[in-house]
Amino acid sequence: LPFYSSEKERKHGTEQLLNRQKHIIDLAYSTAQKFILEGKPGKAIPAGLQALRFSIRVYGSYSVDVVPAYLVLAEACIDAGCLMQATTYLSQAQWIVLKTPDCSPAVQYKLHRDLGLLYAAKGNLEQSVHHLANDIYLASCAFGPNTIQTAGGYFHMANIFLRQNKMDIVNSLYAEVSKTKAHLIFIS
């Protein structure tokens, strides 16, 4: 940090630094998400690590504001097949969420989604369905039942039941996804 001659300059400099760090968090997080969506989890991990590093620096190690960085890292690791590392990131995120009684459903649904995807990747389909059911419930609480966030939970759960060849449940869940899509098209 540069030398400031007055308290006002020091305060302004500290605010500017904090704003730059928050910008880096947003940029690194969105870059990691972009790489995940493009199917490039190996490139998402370094961006996610930057988001985590700066989130911890700005918010502290046990702040719920650090959870999104852990979740994006877990997603990238799941997609890259690094399930042990994904487990570590999700455990840390879960611990923070459990220690934050007023944690929003918007954060919790994403944690359960990633836990569901992790258990699916590990082949534990029963635990996967459990977490995806929590994902759907929490997404509905946070965003409403006919939203893209909720539909994502239905979609992932349908894929789990598809692996179990339970086609009646699969068709029902995919119908929920289609109904949400139709609802979104109707609104716009």
Rank of each mutant, 00 (worst) to 15 (best):
V72S: 06
E15Q: 15
H130P: 00
H183S: 13
I187G: 03
H156R: 14
G81I: 04
I136K: 00
G39S: 08
A86E: 02
Q92G: 08
S5A: 11
K181Y: 05
E15V: 09
A69P: 10
A86R: 07
L98N: 15
I56E: 15
S91D: 08
G153I: 01
T180I: 02
R57L: 12
N124F: 02
K122G: 01
V107T: 13
A32D: 00
S55P: 04
T31M: 09
F186D: 13
T150R: 03
R57F: 10
E7I: 14
I160D: 15
Y137L: 14
L18S: 07
A28H: 06
Y62N: 15
A86L: 01
S172I: 06
S55W: 02
K110V: 09
K110D: 10
H131G: 07
E7M: 13
G39Q: 10
G48W: 01
Q108E: 14
M84T: 14
G123Q: 13
E126H: 06
G60A: 11
N146I: 08
N165F: 01
S55G: 07
A175P: 03
Y29P: 04
S188M: 11
T87K: 06
L52R: 04
Y89P: 06
D26I: 11
G152M: 00
C103V: 15
L52N: 06
Y62Q: 15
